[in-house]
Nucleic acid binder design. Structure first.
Lengths: 308, 308
DNA sequence: GCATAGTTTTGTCCTGGACAAAAATGCGGC
DNA sequence: GCCGCATTTTTGTCCAGGACAAAACTATGC
């Protein structure tokens, strides 16, 4: 019943959806509006995409993830497009960052893990995250946008980094100290690396972290907060998350939580909006997590837990 | 631009597609043909599915995975359907499984972790996975279906289980032995627990596992396989994953991989289909992973790797 | 009893229209 | 001159109903 097993380098619309992440509906409406992609038709009149068009679509997707819009890109000449792809490179990364890119180029999981492990052992968890892991992630994102790295390589890196961090976090003491912090993301937000970074900073600083992974319904977030006697809810948002949805969700949560508990919002994007909500604190950069912890501790001295 | 943020327990068609694995087109054509599901409409005239209908759809999917066809199921009376479901329900869970449900009811992450840790220390990784973790996951799934557990509690459990497993896996030796196994899932398949279970069985048995997480594009899977000198590709599919998509993807991959390399497909659903593909092996249950490893080693004796 | 031919079921594709959310742009007040 | 708000453009996702091949089932002949 499937019609995607085309003999040559021609892909059916389902296969293109799978490979590019663009919905069938989007592919059809682009064809209607912009004249691209313009697939051939098979004997049944169904769309068959040559590989070249699929690769062009992938280039478009990379540029769109950087903020370009389809209409602009479609109007571009071939030369202008290539220039854009070339220019998306940022400043030259430091050599310690490029070193790990080489291990990724070889898809050598063991070497990646060794790189990370060495660095972590040398610098400790906090410096490892702030000075190494985050810059590397940024650079990998750019390499992906340039087409120098594919999703498989990005996954390989993420997996090793996760293992590395989780292992290190699990080795920190679970003290009975405060604050107790619940970490999660909103529904449809899958990006868990931000949570893991935050946990990696907070746990060794003595905060009791409980991560419940990504994409938790709002009702369950507030229920967990109330049941679990948490002081802080830490939420992570990727740049792509719709700001409106985030803000309305935050408003709802802020209203529902226990008096005295805080929400920390990790997002480079939302922090720009000055919408002040009571009990909500925006952390524009990852290092702000630690200052937030300090501030909280200043306001809640361990001797007298009576206030609340 | 997304319209999935419905206030109550009403899901848009995209959310239903995501949760049930039934394509939007299938949902619409069922409505047209059978009159079910018959969603409400919002102010815009767009389909909004009450939770009850989504759960009924999930029931249908489970039965269809057992070989039932939609037309038959739709014609069934409520009583007949319930009888069918009851006959497929498992036995009552053992007390050791229900014990952890109590800690989840209290949302006590530390207690959950302690439960898991104790059990793991007692039984070792393989027995822990097969005799404890998997039954608990099944029971949690049923508790969720009954409404006894919310998503937040499920997440809490999953996170602790992941930590537990990853830690244990990372402590196994990385031997230079064979086979080398690449683990991942197809695009849009987010379920990573299956991968982690497989890794937890394979790694202590001396197989060199590399997981690259979920949702990897097919092209990247085959590229990683070829670059990385892997012997086996292990793929995990949840029950919700569209079987057709899985099969066409497997066909594509099988054709592209190096001669002599195998694909192991972990799925309770696909294993029923007798569609034989060269080099593809279906593992209906998690314990089959270990017998697959044995079979592989019998066919590839370490002394003489000359045989193809 | 089994293979083959015919029938029904079922999933996926098609066209072309619509519309709200997001992004970009224009405009007025400090 | 610059920031905040209103307006316009862009863009992704939804809809209806029709079509058809692959798969599943059924009937028929040897």
């Amino acid at each position: 019943m499937t019609r995607s097993d085309k003999p040559e380098d021609l892909l059916g619309i389902s296969a293109v959806e799978r490979d590019t992440g663009l919905l069938k509906e989007t592919l059809r409406v682009w064809e209607r509006r912009y004249g691209f992609p313009m697939p051939q038709r098979d004997a049944l009149g169904e769309r068959v995409y040559p590989r070249a068009q699929v690769e062009r679509l992938l280039q478009f997707r990379r540029l769109m993830d950087q903020g370009w819009r389809p209409g602009k890109l479609m109007a571009l000449s071939e030369a202008a497009l290539q220039a854009l792809l070339a220019s998306s490179a940022g400043a030259a990364p430091p050599p310690e960052v490029t070193a790990i890119l080489d291990t990724l180029a070889a898809r050598d999981a063991v070497a990646v893990r060794r790189c990370l492990g060495n660095r972590l052992a040398r610098d400790g968890l906090a410096r490892f995250v702030l000075e190494y892991a985050i810059p590397v992630c940024v650079e990998i994102g750019q390499a992906w946008a340039r087409g120098d790295l594919d999703v498989g390589q990005e996954h390989l890196f993420t997996e090793q980094l996760q293992n590395c961090l989780r292992e290190a976090i699990s080795q920190t003491d679970i003290e009975a100290s405060r604050p107790r912090i619940l970490l999660t993301t909103f529904p449809d937000e899958q990006h868990t690396l931000g949570l893991l970074f935050a946990e990696a900073l907070l746990a060794p600083a003595g905060a009791r972290c409980s991560s419940i992974g990504a994409s938790t319904p709002l009702a369950d977030i507030s229920r967990t907060m109330l049941d679990g006697d948490f002081d802080v809810l830490a939420l992570s948002f990727s740049a792509a998350f719709p700001a409106r949805q985030a803000l309305s969700g935050l408003q709802e949560l802020a209203a529902r939580l226990r008096e005295g508990s805080e929400i920390w919002v990790g997002s480079a994007v939302l922090a720009a909006k000055p919408k002040a909500l009571p009990g909500v604190r925006y952390l524009a950069r990852m290092e702000d997590t630690l200052s937030a912890l300090e501030t909280w501790r200043d306001a809640h001295p361990p001797a007298g837990p009576a206030a609340g």
